[in-house]
Amino acid sequence: MCLGIPGRIAAIRDAERRIASVDFSGVRRDVDLTCVAEGALDDLVGTWVLVHVGFAMSVIDEAEAQRTLEALAELGEAEEEYAAMRESAAMLEERP
């Protein structure tokens, strides 16, 4: 929750709602780009962003992304984040 996790923007899913599909080491989820971009979003596809609870907060370069991912893996935080993403997606699909 407090540490951001790097992901790579795979596609813009809904430009009007500022939503992209972001790849986190194989886990895909929707991420809001409101805080990192004004105007057109297409140029952001392929770039790395630091994501806090589903919101991109900074555009970072690939070396920084890898370094951050290694540090998060060492702390056991990366796996925790991916698990939280998967569980949240599964929860949404549950029938009420």
């Binding site: 929750m1 989820r29 929707d30 809001d32 609870v53 589903g54 939280a84 949240s88 949404l92 009420p96």
Partner: peptide, 26 residues
């Protein structure tokens, strides 16, 4: 448990007859 407040908002969209409350923390 949700990963993001976006997922709580989505849950509200999918459950229009329920009151969805997100615990804003941090």
């Amino acid at each position: 448990m949700v990963y993001s407040p976006l997922d709580a908002l989505e849950l509200a969209r999918r459950n229009p007859d329920r009151d969805v409350v997100f615990f804003g923390l941090g």
